[in-house]
Amino acid sequence: MTEEQLTVAGEPLADLARRLDGARTGRWTEEGARALVHDLGLRWEHVTDPASPDGPRLRPVGPSERRYVDEEAYLELAVTVPGAGPDAAGQARAFGRARSELTGALGEASIIGSYGRLGPYYGSTPAWGSPFLRWRGERDTLELRAGRQGPELVLEPTAPLENWYGSLGHGEEDAIGGFIGSRSGPSTAGLSLPGRWSARSWETLTGSLATFLATLPAEFAALGIAKIMRLYGRVGGEAPRLFDIDADSRLMLASFADSDIGPASFGWGTVADHPGTKETWADSYEPRWRRDAGGPGEPAGRELAEMVVATARAQGVASVDDLLLGGEAEDIGPYTVRFYGLGLTTV
C-alpha cells in the first residue's frame, strides 16, 4: 500500500520544496526577504512571529551571527514537516520519509551528514540525532534537517552556513561533531570543509565515541545509510583489525580480540547472547565477540564506548593515536564522508 504524500500547510512537500528551490531570495536582505515571503504567498507577520513555531518562520541575523554574513539580514526560512513520532524511531522514520520524497523530486542531495551536538550557529540539536541533507546552490541552499518537532525544510543562504562550519576547523578537541559527506559535481564546486581534530586522551575519545554511537542507528536510518565501519589498532608494529561497527537501522558491534584478555568482562557477548548479529557476521566464531546495541534511541553510548576503549587498551593499543578508522568507512554511495565527531585518524 502506497503512503500518501507528505503535506505542509496543505501543500505537498515535494511541491513546496520545488518552490523554495526556485525562489528568489534577493541576497537575504530585508527587502529581499520581504519579496521572498510575498512571492511564496506567506504573511510577513506570521513568518516573523516566534510564537508560531510550527509554521514557516524567518530567522534574522543576531549579534553572534554577524561575523558569518555579508549583507544578509536573515539566515533562513524554515518550516516543520508534520507527522513525526515522539521517540527516536518515529523521528527517524519521519525524516526518512521526507528524505525519500525530496530525493524523488530534487535528485540526490549534494551533501549529507549529522551536526552532532552543535547545530548551525552553535544552536542545540535534538537528542535523538541531528541528520541533514542539503541541495546546495551557489547562493542558496535547500536543507532537510532534524528539528525538535520533526524534520524541517529550510531555505538558507549558502555562504553564512558554510562560513560558520568552516570556523569550527580550529583543531581543538570536540571542535566539530557528527559527520559530513559530499558528492562530486557542479553543486559542490567551491565547497570548502574544515580541518579535522584529533582526540588527545582516552577520556576525550570515550566521550566522543559515546556521543557518536548513541545516535548512529537513528541517523543512519534517517539518511538511508547502511555501512560497516572498521577500527584498526597499532599493536607491535602492525595494525590489525580490532572492531567492526555495523551501522544502519540497528547498531551492531564486533571485536576480534583474543579470548585470553577476557572480552566478556568488558561487556562483549557471543552470538548466543546476541543472535541478531548473525545477520551481519554469519560465522559464529569469527568474530567471536559481539554486541547488539539496539535500534534508534536504544544504544547506551557511554557503556559501548567504554567497552571498546577498554578492549583496545587490553589488546595493546598504547595511545589514542594508535586507534584508527579504516578509510573504507568514508565511502558511502556517491559521498565521501568525514567522521569529524570521532576524533580518530583515518587510514
Rank of each mutant, 00 (worst) to 15 (best):
G237M: 10
G326C: 09
R291L: 02
L323D: 13
P263L: 02
D322T: 01
R291C: 02
L324S: 11
G294S: 08
V309Y: 05
A254F: 01
L304M: 10
G233I: 00
D331M: 12
D322R: 01
A272V: 08
E328H: 12
V317F: 06
R291M: 01
A254T: 08
G276R: 14
D331A: 15
T280G: 04
P240Q: 10
P334E: 15
E303C: 02
G236M: 07
P334C: 13
T280H: 09
E286K: 10
Y285I: 01
A318T: 04
E303V: 03
L223A: 13
M252Q: 12
T336F: 12
Y285P: 00
G276P: 07
P263I: 03
S259R: 14
E306L: 12
R291K: 13
E306K: 10
G333K: 13
E279K: 13
E328L: 04
T277Y: 00
M252P: 00
L223Y: 14
A221N: 09
D273T: 02
L251E: 06
E219A: 13
K278A: 01
W289F: 03
I332R: 15
F220H: 15
A310Y: 00
I332T: 15
G326T: 10
L231P: 08
A257V: 11
G326A: 11
F256P: 02
H274P: 01
A282N: 05
P240A: 08
G301L: 11
I332Q: 15
E298D: 08
G236D: 15
I261W: 00
R290I: 09
D321I: 02
Q315E: 14
I228C: 12
Q315A: 04
T277W: 00
D258K: 10
K278F: 00
I225F: 11
G294C: 07
T277M: 09
I332K: 14
I245Y: 03
H274E: 12
P240Y: 12
L231K: 02
L323H: 14
Y232T: 00
G276L: 09
F243C: 01
